[in-house]
Design a protein around this nucleic acid. Sequence first.
DNA 1: TCTGGGGTCCTAGGACCC
DNA 2: TCTGGGGTCCTAGGACCC
Length: 360
Amino acid sequence: MADVEDQPSNIWPQAVLHLDMDAFFVNVHLLHHPEDVGLPLAVGGQPDHRGVIASASYEARQFGIHSAMPSKSALRLCPHLKIVGSNWSDIRDSSRKVMDILKEYGSIERMSVDEAYVDLSDASDPTLLAKEIRRRVKDETTLPASIGLAASKLVAKVASDFDKPEGSTIVHPGEEAAFLAPQPVRVISGIGPKTAGRLIKIGIKSCGQLANSDLGALQVLFGRHAENMQNRARGIDIRRVSSDRGQRKSISHERTFSQDVNEPEELKSHLQKMAGSISNSLKKRKMVAHTIRLKIRWADFTTFTRQMSREIGTDDELQIYETALIILERNWGGKQKIRLLGLGVSGLESPIVRQKGFGF
DNA sequence: TCTGGGGTCCTAGGACCC
DNA sequence: TCTGGGGTCCTAGGACCC
Protein backbone atom coordinates (compact mmCIF):
# COMPACT_ATOMS: atom_id res chain seq x y z
CA MET A 1 0.00 0.00 0.00
CA ALA A 2 1.15 3.49 -0.74
CA ASP A 3 2.46 5.28 2.25
CA VAL A 4 0.78 8.63 2.10
CA GLU A 5 2.22 11.15 4.51
CA ASP A 6 -0.19 14.00 4.08
CA GLN A 7 -3.41 12.23 5.01
CA PRO A 8 -5.23 14.10 7.77
CA SER A 9 -4.97 12.18 11.04
CA ASN A 10 -8.66 12.33 11.85
CA ILE A 11 -9.43 9.78 9.15
CA TRP A 12 -8.39 7.05 11.62
CA PRO A 13 -11.45 5.85 13.53
CA GLN A 14 -9.08 3.56 15.37
CA ALA A 15 -5.37 3.18 14.72
CA VAL A 16 -3.83 -0.20 15.44
CA LEU A 17 -0.16 -0.97 15.06
CA HIS A 18 0.93 -4.58 14.85
CA LEU A 19 4.60 -5.25 15.45
CA ASP A 20 6.11 -8.58 14.53
CA MET A 21 9.79 -9.29 15.13
CA ASP A 22 11.61 -10.83 12.14
CA ALA A 23 13.10 -14.33 12.70
CA PHE A 24 13.14 -13.37 16.36
CA PHE A 25 14.76 -16.42 17.97
CA VAL A 26 17.46 -16.54 15.32
CA ASN A 27 18.23 -12.83 15.58
CA VAL A 28 18.39 -12.96 19.38
CA HIS A 29 20.90 -15.80 19.03
CA LEU A 30 22.98 -13.76 16.59
CA LEU A 31 23.05 -10.86 19.06
CA HIS A 32 25.08 -13.06 21.40
CA HIS A 33 26.88 -15.10 18.72
CA PRO A 34 27.99 -12.68 16.00
CA GLU A 35 30.27 -15.40 14.64
CA ASP A 36 27.16 -17.16 13.29
CA VAL A 37 26.01 -14.19 11.18
CA GLY A 38 25.60 -15.18 7.53
CA LEU A 39 25.30 -18.92 8.20
CA PRO A 40 22.22 -20.92 7.36
CA LEU A 41 21.03 -21.06 10.95
CA ALA A 42 17.97 -22.30 12.79
CA VAL A 43 16.77 -22.30 16.35
CA GLY A 44 14.96 -25.46 17.32
CA GLY A 45 15.17 -29.00 18.63
CA GLN A 46 17.92 -31.41 17.65
CA PRO A 47 17.18 -33.88 14.82
CA ASP A 48 18.07 -36.93 16.92
CA HIS A 49 15.55 -35.78 19.53
CA ARG A 50 12.65 -35.45 17.12
CA GLY A 51 13.01 -31.69 17.26
CA VAL A 52 11.39 -29.16 14.95
CA ILE A 53 12.57 -25.77 13.71
CA ALA A 54 11.26 -22.80 15.72
CA SER A 55 12.88 -20.06 13.66
CA ALA A 56 15.08 -20.02 10.56
CA SER A 57 17.53 -17.38 9.34
CA TYR A 58 16.90 -15.87 5.93
CA GLU A 59 19.97 -17.77 4.66
CA ALA A 60 18.36 -21.03 5.83
CA ARG A 61 15.04 -20.08 4.26
CA GLN A 62 16.78 -20.04 0.88
CA PHE A 63 16.94 -23.83 1.25
CA GLY A 64 13.21 -24.09 1.92
CA ILE A 65 13.58 -24.34 5.66
CA HIS A 66 10.74 -22.90 7.72
CA SER A 67 9.40 -23.07 11.25
CA ALA A 68 7.54 -26.19 12.41
CA MET A 69 9.54 -28.29 9.96
CA PRO A 70 11.14 -31.38 11.53
CA SER A 71 14.83 -30.70 12.11
CA LYS A 72 15.64 -33.97 10.35
CA SER A 73 13.95 -32.77 7.17
CA ALA A 74 15.66 -29.40 7.49
CA LEU A 75 19.06 -31.08 7.59
CA ARG A 76 18.23 -33.08 4.50
CA LEU A 77 17.47 -29.84 2.65
CA CYS A 78 20.62 -28.17 3.95
CA PRO A 79 23.23 -30.55 5.41
CA HIS A 80 25.42 -27.73 6.74
CA LEU A 81 22.51 -26.05 8.58
CA LYS A 82 23.50 -25.05 12.11
CA ILE A 83 20.76 -25.82 14.63
CA VAL A 84 20.95 -24.25 18.09
CA GLY A 85 18.57 -24.44 21.05
CA SER A 86 16.47 -21.50 22.24
CA ASN A 87 18.00 -19.40 24.98
CA TRP A 88 14.87 -18.38 26.83
CA SER A 89 16.48 -15.90 29.17
CA ASP A 90 18.02 -13.98 26.25
CA ILE A 91 14.73 -14.19 24.35
CA ARG A 92 12.73 -12.85 27.28
CA ASP A 93 15.28 -10.06 27.81
CA SER A 94 15.03 -8.85 24.24
CA SER A 95 11.26 -9.23 24.31
CA ARG A 96 10.98 -7.06 27.40
CA LYS A 97 13.08 -4.31 25.77
CA VAL A 98 10.86 -4.29 22.72
CA MET A 99 7.63 -4.25 24.73
CA ASP A 100 8.94 -1.43 26.92
CA ILE A 101 9.44 0.72 23.84
CA LEU A 102 5.92 -0.07 22.58
CA LYS A 103 4.37 0.86 25.92
CA GLU A 104 5.61 4.43 25.53
CA TYR A 105 3.20 4.91 22.62
CA GLY A 106 -0.08 3.53 23.86
CA SER A 107 -1.71 0.56 25.51
CA ILE A 108 -0.34 -2.69 24.16
CA GLU A 109 -1.73 -6.18 23.74
CA ARG A 110 1.13 -8.66 23.88
CA MET A 111 0.40 -11.74 21.78
CA SER A 112 3.67 -13.60 22.36
CA VAL A 113 7.35 -12.87 22.98
CA ASP A 114 7.76 -11.44 19.49
CA GLU A 115 4.41 -9.90 18.63
CA ALA A 116 2.14 -7.16 19.98
CA TYR A 117 -0.58 -4.69 19.07
CA VAL A 118 -0.32 -1.03 20.06
CA ASP A 119 -3.32 1.28 20.22
CA LEU A 120 -2.31 4.50 18.46
CA SER A 121 -5.84 5.89 18.23
CA ASP A 122 -5.01 8.92 20.37
CA ALA A 123 -2.02 9.94 18.27
CA SER A 124 -2.38 13.00 16.08
CA ASP A 125 -0.48 11.20 13.31
CA PRO A 126 -0.30 7.42 13.76
CA THR A 127 1.68 6.96 10.55
CA LEU A 128 4.57 9.04 11.89
CA LEU A 129 4.60 7.11 15.15
CA ALA A 130 4.54 3.76 13.37
CA LYS A 131 7.76 4.59 11.57
CA GLU A 132 9.34 5.98 14.70
CA ILE A 133 8.52 2.81 16.61
CA ARG A 134 10.12 0.52 14.08
CA ARG A 135 13.23 2.70 13.93
CA ARG A 136 13.54 2.84 17.70
CA VAL A 137 13.15 -0.94 18.06
CA LYS A 138 15.96 -1.38 15.54
CA ASP A 139 18.19 1.32 17.08
CA GLU A 140 17.72 0.30 20.69
CA THR A 141 17.72 -3.50 20.37
CA THR A 142 19.51 -3.93 17.00
CA LEU A 143 16.74 -6.43 16.17
CA PRO A 144 14.75 -6.21 12.94
CA ALA A 145 10.97 -5.95 13.08
CA SER A 146 8.09 -5.45 10.68
CA ILE A 147 5.08 -3.29 11.38
CA GLY A 148 1.61 -2.92 10.03
CA LEU A 149 -0.69 0.01 10.69
CA ALA A 150 -4.42 -0.14 10.01
CA ALA A 151 -7.80 0.72 11.45
CA SER A 152 -8.26 -2.82 12.81
CA LYS A 153 -6.24 -5.59 14.41
CA LEU A 154 -7.03 -8.00 11.60
CA VAL A 155 -5.68 -5.75 8.86
CA ALA A 156 -2.75 -4.48 10.94
CA LYS A 157 -1.59 -8.06 11.39
CA VAL A 158 -1.83 -8.90 7.71
CA ALA A 159 -0.01 -5.64 6.96
CA SER A 160 2.92 -6.41 9.27
CA ASP A 161 3.43 -9.69 7.43
CA PHE A 162 3.08 -8.11 3.98
CA ASP A 163 6.62 -6.88 3.42
CA LYS A 164 8.86 -8.92 5.75
CA PRO A 165 11.62 -8.50 6.81
CA GLU A 166 11.88 -4.94 8.09
CA GLY A 167 8.63 -4.07 6.41
CA SER A 168 6.44 -1.11 7.16
CA THR A 169 2.97 -1.31 5.64
CA ILE A 170 0.23 1.22 6.21
CA VAL A 171 -3.33 0.49 5.13
CA HIS A 172 -5.37 3.64 5.25
CA PRO A 173 -9.01 3.57 6.33
CA GLY A 174 -11.19 2.57 3.39
CA GLU A 175 -8.41 0.64 1.64
CA GLU A 176 -8.85 -2.55 3.66
CA ALA A 177 -10.84 -4.63 1.20
CA ALA A 178 -8.60 -3.67 -1.72
CA PHE A 179 -5.49 -4.48 0.29
CA LEU A 180 -6.76 -7.93 1.25
CA ALA A 181 -8.45 -8.86 -2.04
CA PRO A 182 -5.45 -10.31 -3.94
CA GLN A 183 -4.07 -12.17 -0.91
CA PRO A 184 -4.79 -15.83 -0.14
CA VAL A 185 -7.48 -16.51 2.49
CA ARG A 186 -4.80 -18.03 4.73
CA VAL A 187 -3.53 -14.54 5.65
CA ILE A 188 -6.68 -14.08 7.73
CA SER A 189 -6.04 -15.11 11.29
CA GLY A 190 -8.42 -17.95 12.10
CA ILE A 191 -8.40 -19.46 8.62
CA GLY A 192 -6.04 -22.40 8.90
CA PRO A 193 -5.18 -25.26 6.55
CA LYS A 194 -8.51 -27.10 7.03
CA THR A 195 -10.75 -24.12 6.43
CA ALA A 196 -8.63 -22.99 3.48
CA GLY A 197 -8.90 -26.50 2.02
CA ARG A 198 -12.69 -26.44 2.27
CA LEU A 199 -12.79 -23.01 0.65
CA ILE A 200 -10.62 -24.15 -2.26
CA LYS A 201 -13.16 -26.89 -2.97
CA ILE A 202 -15.76 -24.26 -3.74
CA GLY A 203 -13.29 -22.27 -5.80
CA ILE A 204 -12.30 -19.68 -3.22
CA LYS A 205 -8.62 -18.94 -2.96
CA SER A 206 -8.26 -15.21 -2.34
CA CYS A 207 -9.76 -12.84 0.20
CA GLY A 208 -11.41 -10.99 -2.66
CA GLN A 209 -13.18 -14.16 -3.81
CA LEU A 210 -14.28 -14.85 -0.24
CA ALA A 211 -15.51 -11.28 0.19
CA ASN A 212 -17.61 -11.47 -2.98
CA SER A 213 -18.82 -15.06 -2.70
CA ASP A 214 -22.45 -16.05 -2.26
CA LEU A 215 -23.28 -15.96 1.43
CA GLY A 216 -25.80 -18.77 1.10
CA ALA A 217 -23.22 -21.14 -0.37
CA LEU A 218 -20.81 -20.18 2.38
CA GLN A 219 -23.45 -20.83 5.03
CA VAL A 220 -23.97 -24.37 3.77
CA LEU A 221 -20.33 -25.09 4.60
CA PHE A 222 -19.69 -22.91 7.63
CA GLY A 223 -23.07 -22.21 9.20
CA ARG A 224 -23.27 -19.20 11.43
CA HIS A 225 -19.55 -18.50 11.01
CA ALA A 226 -20.00 -17.75 7.33
CA GLU A 227 -21.00 -14.13 7.70
CA ASN A 228 -18.16 -13.35 10.05
CA MET A 229 -15.67 -15.03 7.74
CA GLN A 230 -16.84 -12.97 4.82
CA ASN A 231 -16.65 -9.78 6.85
CA ARG A 232 -13.10 -10.55 7.83
CA ALA A 233 -12.17 -11.06 4.20
CA ARG A 234 -13.44 -7.51 3.67
CA GLY A 235 -11.24 -6.27 6.49
CA ILE A 236 -14.09 -5.74 8.94
CA ASP A 237 -13.01 -6.47 12.50
CA ILE A 238 -14.31 -4.61 15.53
CA ARG A 239 -12.01 -6.15 18.15
CA ARG A 240 -10.25 -3.50 20.24
CA VAL A 241 -6.68 -3.59 21.49
CA SER A 242 -6.98 -4.91 25.01
CA SER A 243 -4.10 -5.00 27.44
CA ASP A 244 -6.09 -7.18 29.81
CA ARG A 245 -5.68 -10.71 28.57
CA GLY A 246 -7.63 -12.15 31.50
CA GLN A 247 -6.87 -15.09 33.74
CA ARG A 248 -5.00 -18.17 32.59
CA LYS A 249 -7.35 -21.04 31.74
CA SER A 250 -4.93 -23.96 31.71
CA ILE A 251 -1.35 -24.97 32.44
CA SER A 252 0.30 -27.93 30.76
CA HIS A 253 3.56 -29.66 29.96
CA GLU A 254 4.28 -32.37 27.48
CA ARG A 255 7.29 -34.31 26.40
CA THR A 256 8.06 -36.16 23.22
CA PHE A 257 10.67 -38.81 23.94
CA SER A 258 13.72 -39.20 21.70
CA GLN A 259 12.80 -42.88 21.67
CA ASP A 260 9.38 -44.35 22.36
CA VAL A 261 9.03 -45.50 25.95
CA ASN A 262 7.22 -48.39 27.63
CA GLU A 263 9.20 -48.50 30.88
CA PRO A 264 6.72 -47.74 33.72
CA GLU A 265 9.38 -46.20 35.95
CA GLU A 266 10.53 -43.85 33.23
CA LEU A 267 6.96 -42.75 32.48
CA LYS A 268 6.26 -42.23 36.17
CA SER A 269 9.35 -40.13 36.65
CA HIS A 270 8.30 -37.89 33.76
CA LEU A 271 4.82 -37.53 35.22
CA GLN A 272 6.33 -36.61 38.55
CA LYS A 273 8.51 -33.89 37.02
CA MET A 274 5.60 -32.44 35.09
CA ALA A 275 3.33 -32.57 38.16
CA GLY A 276 6.01 -30.75 40.15
CA SER A 277 6.39 -27.98 37.65
CA ILE A 278 2.62 -27.57 37.22
CA SER A 279 2.20 -27.44 40.99
CA ASN A 280 4.86 -24.71 41.15
CA SER A 281 3.13 -22.66 38.46
CA LEU A 282 -0.20 -22.97 40.26
CA LYS A 283 1.33 -21.88 43.57
CA LYS A 284 3.13 -18.97 41.95
CA ARG A 285 -0.20 -17.79 40.52
CA LYS A 286 -2.04 -18.59 43.77
CA MET A 287 -4.46 -20.83 41.91
CA VAL A 288 -5.90 -24.30 42.26
CA ALA A 289 -7.05 -26.65 39.50
CA HIS A 290 -10.17 -28.78 39.38
CA THR A 291 -9.36 -30.86 36.32
CA ILE A 292 -6.29 -32.96 35.55
CA ARG A 293 -5.70 -34.11 32.01
CA LEU A 294 -3.33 -36.71 30.65
CA LYS A 295 -2.27 -36.77 27.01
CA ILE A 296 -0.86 -39.85 25.35
CA ARG A 297 0.56 -40.26 21.87
CA TRP A 298 1.33 -43.80 20.75
CA ALA A 299 4.28 -44.69 18.54
CA ASP A 300 1.99 -44.50 15.48
CA PHE A 301 1.13 -40.86 16.37
CA THR A 302 -2.47 -41.55 17.44
CA THR A 303 -3.14 -39.06 20.16
CA PHE A 304 -5.83 -38.78 22.80
CA THR A 305 -6.52 -37.12 26.14
CA ARG A 306 -8.31 -38.34 29.25
CA GLN A 307 -9.24 -36.11 32.14
CA MET A 308 -10.58 -36.31 35.69
CA SER A 309 -12.25 -33.55 37.66
CA ARG A 310 -12.32 -33.18 41.40
CA GLU A 311 -14.73 -31.27 43.61
CA ILE A 312 -11.94 -29.55 45.55
CA GLY A 313 -9.30 -27.75 43.54
CA THR A 314 -5.66 -28.58 44.18
CA ASP A 315 -2.19 -27.15 43.68
CA ASP A 316 -0.52 -30.15 45.28
CA GLU A 317 2.20 -31.97 43.35
CA LEU A 318 1.38 -35.37 44.84
CA GLN A 319 -2.36 -35.10 44.18
CA ILE A 320 -1.76 -34.05 40.60
CA TYR A 321 0.76 -36.84 40.12
CA GLU A 322 -1.45 -39.53 41.65
CA THR A 323 -4.44 -38.51 39.57
CA ALA A 324 -2.28 -38.59 36.44
CA LEU A 325 -1.06 -42.06 37.41
CA ILE A 326 -4.61 -43.36 37.81
CA ILE A 327 -5.49 -42.07 34.35
CA LEU A 328 -2.32 -43.57 32.89
CA GLU A 329 -3.04 -46.98 34.41
CA ARG A 330 -6.59 -46.94 33.06
CA ASN A 331 -5.45 -46.21 29.54
CA TRP A 332 -2.10 -47.91 29.12
CA GLY A 333 -1.80 -51.66 29.04
CA GLY A 334 1.85 -51.53 30.00
CA LYS A 335 3.24 -52.78 26.72
CA GLN A 336 2.40 -50.18 24.08
CA LYS A 337 5.20 -47.80 23.28
CA ILE A 338 4.50 -44.19 24.11
CA ARG A 339 5.90 -41.37 22.00
CA LEU A 340 4.54 -38.44 23.98
CA LEU A 341 3.25 -37.98 27.46
CA GLY A 342 1.55 -34.75 28.55
CA LEU A 343 0.04 -33.51 31.75
CA GLY A 344 -2.19 -30.48 32.10
CA VAL A 345 -4.60 -28.82 34.49
CA SER A 346 -7.64 -26.67 33.85
CA GLY A 347 -10.68 -25.47 35.72
CA LEU A 348 -8.38 -22.96 37.37
CA GLU A 349 -9.65 -20.86 40.19
CA SER A 350 -8.14 -18.56 42.73
CA PRO A 351 -9.03 -19.83 46.23
CA ILE A 352 -9.63 -16.22 47.36
CA VAL A 353 -12.59 -16.02 44.99
CA ARG A 354 -14.11 -19.04 46.69
CA GLN A 355 -13.82 -17.50 50.14
CA LYS A 356 -15.86 -14.52 49.02
CA GLY A 357 -18.74 -16.96 48.66
CA PHE A 358 -18.78 -17.42 52.42
CA GLY A 359 -20.22 -13.98 52.93
CA PHE A 360 -17.28 -12.04 54.28
C1' DT B 1 9.84 -38.20 5.52
C1' DC B 2 8.57 -37.24 10.01
C1' DT B 3 5.65 -34.95 12.51
C1' DG B 4 7.61 -29.67 19.40
C1' DG B 5 5.39 -27.31 23.10
C1' DG B 6 2.27 -24.06 25.20
C1' DG B 7 -1.88 -22.12 24.74
C1' DT B 8 -7.26 -20.60 23.33
C1' DC B 9 -11.72 -21.41 21.61
C1' DC B 10 -15.43 -24.19 19.70
C1' DT B 11 -18.43 -28.28 19.11
C1' DA B 12 -20.91 -32.27 20.28
C1' DG B 13 -22.70 -35.84 23.09
C1' DG B 14 -24.13 -37.58 27.54
C1' DA B 15 -25.47 -37.05 32.43
C1' DC B 16 -28.26 -34.78 35.39
C1' DC B 17 -31.62 -31.48 37.20
C1' DC B 18 -36.00 -29.02 37.31
C1' DT C 1 -47.38 -45.68 21.28
C1' DC C 2 -44.25 -42.52 21.88
C1' DT C 3 -40.84 -41.07 24.15
C1' DG C 4 -40.89 -32.44 26.56
C1' DG C 5 -37.49 -29.02 26.88
C1' DG C 6 -34.15 -26.09 28.82
C1' DG C 7 -29.88 -25.30 31.26
C1' DT C 8 -25.45 -26.65 33.04
C1' DC C 9 -21.53 -29.43 33.69
C1' DC C 10 -18.26 -32.79 32.13
C1' DT C 11 -15.54 -35.18 28.63
C1' DA C 12 -13.19 -35.64 24.22
C1' DG C 13 -11.65 -34.06 20.03
C1' DG C 14 -10.28 -30.69 16.68
C1' DA C 15 -8.90 -26.22 14.52
C1' DC C 16 -5.97 -22.73 15.10
C1' DC C 17 -2.16 -19.50 16.78
C1' DC C 18 2.73 -18.38 18.00
